[in-house]
């Protein structure tokens, strides 16, 4: 909660500066901010893209002197090229980047920094410390831990859990390790862990096979709401809705809605808000329009969404 509060400060500052923006912008120097993020290949990234575009549109109106260059990349190579192009041809003053992978992007981002630009890194850290001016990220370990702790504290003794993992990545490993650590020493058992690749169809198939393989399952950690949708469908097909609970993650609006409506199958969810890109872009913009330097590390921890607090995480307009 504490870290989250820290984040609220610059957002408040943004609100303040909004009022003065009109007059301020007239004679202000023109600023270009590059935003480089992965393209919308699945639900979470789709949400992230939506928030990025939404924020850029909003800030673009508020600060006419700031120009945003948004580039989305389907793979690492394209993202590196995007960043090189921004530096070479768009003459950016600041860069907001959500790296596809840490290692390959460290060097290109470092070069942007060395060119004297303001660098904001989002969500996935670079391989080398101290490059970025500003770091805004979700907490992957906490994302796994919160789910694990919920299972530890709320499931019956000897409860059996199956896990659907994401695409094999460091990020997925961090989440899963924290999840396992939270359950360690408890009387709950993890039956199986397979990759559902953060994909509905893959998760559906894996869950079908879990259901065929294990006559008793008490809980499913789907680790992502896209996968949770596939899992729920497979459970419905097997007619075992009342036997197990499903915990997803990242707060998809449909799932949040069901938690608000107290669906017994979906008791809780864990946040990993795609909106963190908005905070990163806003703070970067503020660095240029306000006098307060926006540097440091901002970790947005994962929260447990329960029927009681679900409403504040519900964004009906977001595509995710």
């Amino acid at each position: 909660m504490k870290r989250r509060n820290m984040l609220k400060m610059p957002v408040a500052a943004a609100a303040l500066s909004l009022m003065t923006a009109g007059a301020f912008a007239q004679d202000a120097e023109q600023v270009v901010i590059g935003v480089s993020i992965p393209s919308a290949t699945h639900g979470f990234m789709g949400g992230l893209n939506w928030h990025a575009q939404d924020t850029i549109a909003r800030l673009g109106e508020a600060y006419p002197n700031i120009e945003f260059v948004l580039a989305t990349a389907p793979d690492v190579g394209k993202q590196v090229s995007d960043i090189e192009d921004m530096l070479a041809t768009r003459d950016i003053d600041g860069l907001v980047v959500l790296p596809f992978e840490s290692d390959p992007l460290t060097d290109p981002v470092k070069q942007v920094k060395e060119a004297g630009k303001f660098v904001t890194v989002v969500d996935r850290g670079l391989a080398e410390e101290g490059i970025e001016d500003l770091y805004v990220a979700g907490d992957n370990a906490a994302f796994g831990r919160v789910a694990g702790e919920y299972f530890r504290d709320n499931l019956d003794a000897d409860a059996k859990i199956v896990v659907l993992r994401g695409i094999p990545t460091t990020l997925d490993n961090e989440r899963v390790e924290a999840f396992q650590a939270a359950l360690e020493g408890s009387d709950k058992e993890i039956l199986d862990m397979q990759h559902g690749n953060w994909n509905r169809d893959d998760a559906f198939n894996v869950m079908q096979d879990y259901l065929a393989k294990y006559p008793e399952i008490d809980a499913v950690w789907a680790a992502d709401d896209d996968m949770a949708i596939g899992v729920l469908e497979a459970i419905a097909q097997a007619g075992r809705e009342d036997q197990m609970v499903v915990v997803g993650g990242a707060g998809m609006k449909d799932i949040i809605k069901r938690i608000m409506d107290k669906d017994p199958q979906l008791p809780v969810n864990v946040t990993y808000p795609p909106a963190l890109i908005s905070s990163a872009i806003e703070m970067t913009a503020l660095n240029f329009v306000s006098s307060a330097p926006m540097t440091g590390r901002y970790i947005i921890s994962s929260q447990l969404i329960t029927p009681e607090n679900a409403e504040q995480y519900y964004f009906p307009d977001s595509p995710f």
Partner: peptide
């Protein structure tokens, strides 16, 4: 009818 949805990641 299986999942009632389609997205950019369908059919990859």
């Amino acid at each position: 009818p299986r999942l009632g949805s389609a997205s950019g990641s369908t059919g990859v």
